[in-house]
Design a protein around this nucleic acid. Structure first.
Lengths: 227, 227
DNA sequence: TTATTACTGTGTACCCTAGACGCAGTATCT
DNA sequence: AGATACTGCGTCTAGGGTACACAGTAATAA
């Protein structure tokens, strides 16, 4: 597996016909399909058809589907926009919100970024940005990397949750709570908690809640190390 | 999409030949394949062949591949084993470790549990267990649910990280740090942090680190609410 | 006992996917 | 011009999920 294409692009050859397509157009076509119908709908066939070409034409640009998806991710996730905050806590919060927004705009990036795969400059750009925000004193290098991992984990967890609750047809959530009611003796705490949650009017605060807990815990450690 | 099969099983009909196979055997065959070769290797063809049947025989037991995977997940994830700790913090930590272990035993469960899908009793059993541990005072219902989400997010984040670093062939990590070195001017904080992490000898502490931050933050909130 | 019914396992068929390969046409360099 | 090397396409293979019809079998109804 090579990851060169993500970093250095393709060297434009001098001879022969000029390419009609471009990596950008191909990636954008794939992104449009994935946004509208999910990652499974992204087939070489389909992407090519949307562009008005045959699928084999795409193989002149990308080595295979995995490479296409990697390009799509890289383009969809983009770069974090700079913040002017000096406070590390609010800056990290802003970063997490931006990352969440990116994942919510393209929920398929969750599936596309699972497991071992080529990672491009934009994705590392997000890490770079977060690390440039984190205070360097009070945390070891490993701890700083681990901090990014917790935060990104929270972002992904909430993005996934939103993906489920956003899903309208079939209404799986209803069916589950239906089974839950039918087996309420087996899940007393769960039933009670969901009943309580239904009336406490604090919905859609999951992201903020988790984020605040993580940042609180981080703050505790940093101030403790600082003294 | 129905989820009945996960909760109530199949009603055994009285007439006709007795089934030679069972949902358990089929799920186990699928799990064995996924453990050894990944979720992509789980094809109806392959599962049936491993059991000594034709693929169409499986459709007498499961409605389709999605249902097969749901059964595999439910069986692979199992139930959390009870803890005798009364301290909520250590009990939650134990719970998270158990969940992580389950995901590490079957890394494909990460892909298999993405997005809207039928959820079975075992999966809710993990939630139930965590909720039965959490102190009911000091947190609203929504907050208790959100707490599970953060913790599960951390578990998944680390499981995914382990999945990548476990992957031996190709050694993507090496290629990435190669590109990183080549573009070190663009990622100064990242390069510096990784260099620092390489010498601080705190590897593989990512799970504990994030978990401790989350629990610290939770502790802060709970004690604060308690007074 | 026999006829009916309902179930199991299988063979065949269809459609969709990723991708290998070779060919025709075209733009550049020698 | 001729050679070279590139683009886009048509064809082909291997494999995936699944619909459907058929033969065999076990339990029920007549």
């Amino acid at each position: 597996m090579t990851i060169d294409f993500l970093w250095n692009g393709r060297a434009r050859p001098t001879r022969g016909p000029k390419p009609t397509l471009s990596l950008e157009r191909i990636a954008d076509a794939g992104i449009a399909i994935a946004d509208a119908e999910g990652l499974d709908a992204v087939a070489m066939q389909r992407v090519a058809a949307d562009l008005g070409f045959t699928k084999m034409a795409l193989y002149r640009y990308v080595a295979g589907k995995a490479e296409l998806v990697a390009l799509m991710v890289e383009r969809a996730i983009g770069e974090p926009s700079a913040t002017d905050t000096t406070d590390w806590r609010t800056a990290l919060k802003e970063w997490a919100h931006q990352l969440l927004a990116a994942h919510l705009r393209h929920t398929w990036t969750l599936e596309a970024t699972l497991g071992p795969r080529p990672i491009g400059p934009n994705e590392l750009g997000w890490m770079e940005h977060a690390l440039s925000i984190l205070p360097t004193t009070g945390l070891t290098g490993s701890e700083r990397l681990d901090t990014i991992a917790v935060l990104a984990g929270q972002v992904r967890a909430i993005a996934q949750q939103a993906m489920v609750s956003r899903h309208p047809e079939g209404d799986i959530t209803a069916k589950i709570s239906d089974q839950l009611r039918r087996h309420s003796d087996r899940f007393p705490a769960l039933v009670a908690t969901m009943a309580a949650a239904a009336t406490d009017g604090e919905h859609d605060q999951a992201f903020e809640f988790g984020l605040d807990r993580i940042l609180d815990g981080l703050d505790t450690l940093i101030t403790q190390r600082g003294s």
